[in-house]
C-alpha cells in the first residue's frame, strides 16, 4: 500500500476526531487561557512560559483524548465505521498505527501546540531565547498526554462502549495523577528516595522542567514516561491486530 492510502485514511479519521465544534472551542479556550497566563505576568524564560501555558492545557488535552479519542473510538466500533475502515485494503497493524496517530498523537500535538504557537507569536523574543528548551517541554507534555491517550484508547478497544470507556478513561487519569502525588508523599515521609523519584518521574514535564532549572534529575526519570508510551503503543497495536474483533 502506498503512503497516499495511509494518508487519506488518516485524513478521514483525523477529521472525525477533530470535528467541530469540540476541538475549536477547546483550542480557543486553552490557547487564550495559556497565553493570557503568560501575558499577565512578565515571563522572561521560555521554559517557564511553556510550563505555565502547557500545564492547564495538559488537563484539557487529557479530557479531549478521553472524549474524542477513547469514547470516539468506542463510537467508531459501535456504529460500525470501524468495519468500513477494515474493508479498505489496509492491514490491521498499519490501521492500528493510524488509529493511534489520529486518536492520540495528532490531537495531543495539536491541542498542546496551539497555546505554544500563540506564545511564539505573542512573546517571540522571549520564546526564541531557547527554542530547543521549549521543544523539550513540548515533547515532555506530548509524551505525558500520549500516555493518557493510549491508556484511554485501550479501554475503548476493550470495552467497545462509549460510556464505559469514557468513565474508565477519566478514572484512570485521576488514578494515575493520584499515584504520582501519593508516591512522593509516602517516599518523603518514610525516607524512601526511590519511591519519591518514581512518583516524580511519573510526571515527565516536571522532570524536564527541573532539569532545565538545574535541579538534579536521573536519566531513568526522564526515560520512564517515554518508555511507558512506547510499551503501551506496541501493546495497543498488538491488541488491535491479534485480539480486536468487530461487533
Amino acid at each position: 500500500m502506498s503512503l497516499r492510502t495511509y494518508y487519506n485514511l488518516l485524513y478521514i479519521d483525523v477529521s472525525d476526531v477533530l470535528r467541530p465544534p469540540g476541538l475549536d472551542v477547546l483550542v480557543l479556550l486553552v490557547a487564550s487561557l495559556g497565553s493570557a497566563l503568560v501575558t499577565i505576568q512578565p515571563v522572561t524564560s521560555p521554559v517557564v512560559a511553556s510550563r505555565i501555558a502547557l500545564d492547564p492545557t495538559l488537563f484539557a488535552a487529557a479530557l479531549f483524548l478521553a472524549v474524542r479519542g477513547s469514547a470516539g473510538m468506542a463510537y467508531l466500533i459501535q456504529s460500525g465505521i470501524i468495519n468500513t475502515y477494515l474493508t479498505y485494503p489496509i492491514g490491521k497493524v498499519p490501521l492500528a498505527v493510524l488509529l493511534a496517530l489520529s486518536r492520540v498523537f495528532i490531537p495531543s500535538l495539536l491541542v498542546l501546540g496551539a497555546p505554544l504557537l500563540i506564545l511564539f507569536l505573542l512573546l517571540g523574543s522571549v520564546m526564541l531565547k531557547a527554542p530547543e528548551k521549549v521543544f523539550g517541554m513540548y515533547t515532555a507534555f506530548f509524551f505525558q498526554a500520549s500516555l493518557y491517550g493510549l491508556i484511554f484508547l485501550f479501554f475503548a478497544l476493550r470495552s467497545r462502549s462509549q460510556s464505559t470507556s469514557g468513565l474508565l478513561s477519566v478514572s484512570a487519569y485521576f488514578a494515575y495523577t493520584a499515584i504520582a502525588l501519593i508516591l512522593p508523599a509516602i517516599g518523603r515521609s518514610t525516607g524512601n528516595e526511590t519511591l519519591t523519584k518514581v512518583g516524580e518521574a511519573m510526571y515527565l514535564p516536571e522532570i524536564i522542567y527541573s532539569s532545565y532549572m538545574r535541579a538534579s534529575v536521573e536519566s531513568w526519570q526522564i526515560l520512564l514516561v517515554p518508555s511507558l508510551v512506547t510499551i503501551l503503543f506496541i501493546f495497543v497495536v498488538i491488541y488491535f491486530w491479534r485480539r480486536f474483533e468487530v461487533i
Partner: peptide, 29 residues
C-alpha cells in the same frame, strides 16, 4: 489486506464517517 482490493462492502446499517461532506469523503476514498 490485498484480498480486499477490488472488494466493495455495503453493510446493513451503512456507516461512513460523518465528519466530511459526502463529496470530500468520496474524494478521499
Amino acid at each position: 489486506s490485498r484480498a480486499r482490493r477490488g472488494v466493495g462492502v455495503v453493510f446493513e446499517r451503512p456507516m461512513l464517517p460523518d465528519s466530511l461532506p459526502i463529496r470530500d469523503l468520496l474524494y478521499r476514498a
